[in-house]
């Protein structure tokens, strides 16, 4: 399958990429890891006249810690995050990176590209929305930062202007006593999940001080299950409390019936995923090392 013909431009810097896109106009698009965009081009769902390739820009792939936050260059590949000891400081990030599609896709796909694409089934948005995440952007009028919750507007829609791009993703390291988990249920590795759940909890003894729960692939964007969070906050995390929260998450999910399952099936998946993710998050909050693994049908 061939995409429609396009002109290819290779940016040497992020500033040059922004100015190229401005000059080339509405028919131009940025190309990051390409693992979502190239399939869309091949199916001719997207038909840009110009592609501005970001892959040759030096210094856009990095993972560093600064002022209590982890910083990821926009072109950092999923595989680089998967294998980063630093990224393991926030276990949700490792859970997410290590479970995206398969080895080949993780070698190419990027965290910045994933956020900018805003696919409702994409993993990164759902995992990061439970954390304090700031998206650094660059446009013709300069740099700005946007909270992730304000960055994602709708399915495939972000706060980015046409000629604006993501330069960096900043994730605040959660406090001591906080633990998180990201779990996705997939029919096989290369496909998008049928449903996913991200949980971040902060405990004081047995009592849950703070909770963030997000659901993926069951709405037009990642959904914060606020009533499920309320069910946990201020309570000790007994099996009954966890079950109440998981039931509240079922009500928050808004799935569509499609080839990945019926809406009812996906709601049931959400209950199971939220329950398991809470259990892992609690153990991690208590300092246990727990491998979070995606679940395959």
């Amino acid at each position: 399958m061939y995409p429609r013909s396009f002109h290819y431009h290779r940016a040497g810097s992020l500033e040059e990429a922004v100015s190229m896109l401005g000059q080339l106009g509405e028919g131009a698009k940025f190309l990051a890891g390409g693992q979502s965009l190239i399939p869309l081009l091949k199916l001719r769902f997207a038909n840009p006249e110009h592609l501005v390739d970001l892959n040759f820009i030096p210094g856009t792939s990095f993972i560093k810690e600064d002022s209590g936050a982890l910083h990821f260059g926009a072109m950092t590949r999923h595989a680089e995050i998967e294998h980063s000891a630093l990224a393991r400081k926030i276990p949700v990030l490792h859970d997410c990176a290590a479970g995206i599609a398969d080895v080949q896709v993780r070698n190419r796909g990027t965290i910045g590209g994933s956020l900018a694409e805003a696919d409702p089934s994409g993993d990164w948005t759902n995992a990061l929305i439970t954390l304090d995440t700031i998206v650094h952007c660059l446009g013709p009028s300069g740099a700005r930062t946007i909270q992730l919750r304000d960055f994602i507007k709708d399915a495939y829609t972000t706060a980015l202007a046409h000629d604006e791009l993501v330069t960096e993703v900043e994730v605040k390291i959660p406090p001591q006593g906080s633990g998180g988990a990201y779990l996705a249920f997939k029919r096989s590795a290369p496909v998008y999940p049928s449903a996913s759940a991200a949980v971040q909890l902060t405990l004081a003894g047995d009592v849950c001080q703070d909770a963030a729960i997000a659901l993926g692939c069951v709405g037009l964007t990642a959904i914060r299950a606020t009533e499920a969070e309320t069910a946990l906050r201020g309570n000790s995390l007994s099996d009954k409390t966890i079950a109440t929260a998981a039931e509240a998450a079922r009500a928050a999910a808004d799935p569509q019936t499609d080839m990945r399952g019926s809406a009812e099936y996906k709601r049931q998946l959400v209950v199971a995923l939220v329950k398991r993710a809470i259990q892992i998050a609690v153990r991690r909050a208590r300092g246990e090392q727990v491998e979070g693994a995606h679940l395959y049908a």
Binding site: K42, Q104, N107, R108
Partner: peptide
Amino acid sequence: DTTYCGACTVLMNGLAVKSCTMF
């Protein structure tokens, strides 16, 4: 030809990539 099956896998600078999903 849809980034699924991996029959087109090659190594690029030592890393496996799906050559149907790169220009």
